[in-house]
Simulated scan of single mutants.
Amino acid sequence: MARLIDCTLREGAQAPNVVWRIDQSIAIARGLLEFGVDCIEAGHPSASNLEFDRTRALSQLRRDIPLLAHARAQIEDIRCVKAAGAEWVGIFAGVSEVSRNVKFRNRSLDEIIGLIETSIAFAKSIGLQVRFTLEDTSRTDWNLQGIAYRAAISKGADRICFSDTVGVLTPTEARLSLQRLKSTFSQTPIEVHFHNDRGLALANAVEVAPMVNWISTSVNGIGERCGITDTIAMRANLDFEQTRTLTADQVDLSRKLSDVVSALGRNTIEDRLPIVGRYAFTHCADLHIKAFEKDVNAYCWLKDFDGQNTHRNVAVL
């Protein structure tokens, strides 16, 4: 059965207009716990004092599910995750051509693999469980995927994550990619993270749900640009497929949770519609902004897109 890791409080923090306060983060987390997700993904503790304090506050909530926080493949980021009190660290790095050229400033593949190995080994040495996400997996050559995932697993990664970072896959492509990944790494739990830039995130997640262990979601699909797979819609689809139940009480809870996230985040589903939504090509995460300004292909699926209609943030309060 696929479990849901909700990253409203991490991915959602990369949506335009969103700055989750500590009290808002706690309110959303309590709603998620009541609704019944299987893991909460907090923010990126090393990014700012607020991100650290939010993660720390979430770690102190009474809960029976794990808390995961984000980190680059860097020792200082991982130390912050440990200090903030999360049990899991989500370490991410990319090895695709665009990742090497844009985000890693032309570092060699061997250098990037070395960062992945060193960071995961360190995280394990300080008692953290590790999810390794290969950023932009869907646009990464299969051989390079294998090299990166094998390196992560060799150093103790507890699960690996396939990320369709720019939302390019169709359900058929997603299924074929995950079948190959599962057959190659059959002993390692697999998570998927689908972006909605083509409007296919939910369809992709439903297609691969029978073959993966975790699905990354957020309430209302809130996230970077057009967002990701919607937590509530995914839970309902799992119920429809008879792999997970959704009670009438949970439906009522989901409506309240949806309203809270929409109000506190000042985001509507219409804002995130592919192509025509005003956030469709908007970036807020600093790492994404820098890469996008250097090469729009780093975080855009449309060919020949010039990026002239994008902006760093949308301040509509």
Rank of each mutant, 00 (worst) to 15 (best):
residue 102 V to G: 09
residue 102 V to L: 07
residue 102 V to W: 02
residue 103 K to E: 08
residue 104 F to A: 10
residue 105 R to S: 14
residue 106 N to F: 06
residue 107 R to S: 15
residue 109 L to H: 08
residue 109 L to A: 02
residue 110 D to C: 00
residue 112 I to E: 05
residue 113 I to A: 04
residue 114 G to Y: 02
residue 115 L to C: 10
residue 115 L to F: 13
residue 117 E to H: 02
residue 118 T to S: 15
residue 119 S to R: 03
residue 121 A to K: 11
residue 123 A to V: 03
residue 126 I to S: 04
residue 126 I to Q: 07
residue 127 G to M: 10
residue 127 G to V: 11
residue 127 G to N: 07
residue 129 Q to C: 10
residue 129 Q to D: 11
residue 130 V to R: 02
residue 131 R to M: 14
residue 131 R to Y: 03
residue 132 F to E: 01
residue 137 T to W: 01
residue 138 S to D: 03
residue 140 T to E: 02
residue 141 D to Q: 10
residue 141 D to Y: 00
residue 141 D to G: 03
residue 142 W to F: 14
residue 144 L to K: 07
residue 144 L to E: 11
residue 145 Q to N: 12
residue 146 G to H: 05
residue 147 I to L: 15
residue 148 A to W: 05
residue 150 R to P: 00
residue 151 A to S: 13
residue 151 A to V: 04
residue 151 A to C: 10
residue 152 A to V: 07
residue 153 I to E: 03
residue 155 K to Y: 04
residue 156 G to P: 08
residue 157 A to S: 10
residue 163 S to C: 15
residue 164 D to T: 11
residue 168 V to W: 01
residue 170 T to P: 07
residue 171 P to T: 08
residue 172 T to Q: 13
residue 172 T to E: 15
residue 173 E to D: 13
residue 176 L to V: 15
residue 178 L to G: 06
residue 180 R to N: 12
residue 180 R to H: 11
residue 180 R to V: 03
residue 181 L to H: 05
residue 186 S to P: 02
residue 187 Q to I: 07
residue 187 Q to W: 07
residue 187 Q to N: 14
residue 188 T to P: 05
residue 190 I to P: 02
residue 191 E to W: 00
residue 191 E to I: 03
residue 193 H to D: 10
residue 194 F to M: 12
residue 194 F to C: 13
residue 195 H to V: 08
residue 196 N to K: 10
residue 196 N to M: 09
residue 198 R to P: 05
residue 199 G to L: 12
residue 205 A to T: 09
residue 205 A to Q: 04
residue 205 A to Y: 03
residue 206 V to C: 02
residue 206 V to S: 03
residue 209 A to K: 01
residue 209 A to P: 01
residue 210 P to F: 07
residue 211 M to D: 12
residue 211 M to R: 05
residue 211 M to V: 15
residue 214 W to I: 15
residue 214 W to Y: 13
residue 216 S to T: 15
residue 218 S to Q: 02
residue 218 S to A: 15
residue 221 G to P: 07
